[in-house]
C-alpha cells in the first residue's frame, strides 16, 4: 500500500515537469469567485490554473469599481503560497477583482477581471428573524426564572 502511494506521489510530482514546457504558454491563470450574488458580504476568490510547484511572487488581488481598472481602489495580498483568499465586510455593490503576480521566472501576469455582486439581505428580513429569536429567547429565559423560583420554594 505505501508503495502505491509513493509511486503515485512520484507520478504526480514528475508529470507537471513533462508538460510544463509545452503548457507554459497554454496554461491560463484565471480568477474564480462566487457565481451567485453574495448576501453576507464575505466570499472566497481562487486563483486557478496554477502549477503546484510554482512559487508565485507578490501575488495580490486588485479591486476596482469598473472592468478596466481605471482606478485600483484596494489591494489584498495573498497569504504566503496560498492561491485562495477570503475577503469580507463588503457593502452592497458591484466589484471587479483581478489577480496580479510574478511567476518564479520573473514573468508578470494579470488575470482577466471577474465581477462580484454583493447584495445583503433586506434589513426587514433580518429584523423579523431577530424578533422571532428574541421572543423565543424571552420565553425560555422567563420560563426558567419563574420555574426556578417556584421549584426553589417547593424544594428549599
Amino acid at each position: 500500500m505505501p508503495g502505491i502511494i509513493r509511486i503515485l506521489t512520484i507520478i504526480i510530482t514528475v508529470l507537471p515537469v513533462f508538460f510544463s514546457a509545452a503548457e507554459a504558454q497554454l496554461k491560463e491563470l484565471a480568477l474564480e469567485g462566487p457565481s451567485a450574488v453574495v448576501k453576507e458580504g464575505y466570499f472566497t476568490l481562487n486563483l486557478t490554473g496554477t502549477a503546484s510547484d510554482e512559487n508565485y511572487q507578490q501575488l495580490e488581488i486588485e479591486q476596482s469599481t469598473d472592468e478596466n481598472f481605471t482606478q485600483v481602489e484596494s489591494r489584498f495580498p495573498f497569504l504566503g503560497n496560498f492561491t485562495q483568499i477570503s475577503l469580507s465586510g463588503f457593502n452592497n455593490g458591484n466589484y471587479w477583482f483581478r489577480a496580479r503576480g510574478q511567476s518564479s521566472d520573473g514573468t508578470e501576469f494579470t488575470t482577466a477581471p471577474i465581477a462580484v455582486t454583493v447584495q445583503h439581505y433586506p434589513l426587514w428580513q433580518a429584523l423579523t428573524l431577530f424578533s422571532i429569536g428574541a421572543v423565543m429567547f424571552l420565553i425560555v429565559a422567563s420560563y426558567i426564572l419563574l420555574a426556578a423560583r417556584k421549584g426553589g420554594r417547593r424544594h428549599g
Binding site: 433586506p122 422571532i132 429567547f137
Partner: peptide, 15 residues
C-alpha cells in the same frame, strides 16, 4: 460592513 451595527446576515445569525 464589519463595523456596521445593522449588518443583516450578522443580525440573522445572532439568536
Amino acid at each position: 460592513k464589519l463595523l456596521d451595527v445593522l449588518f443583516p446576515a450578522a443580525i440573522m445569525f445572532l439568536f
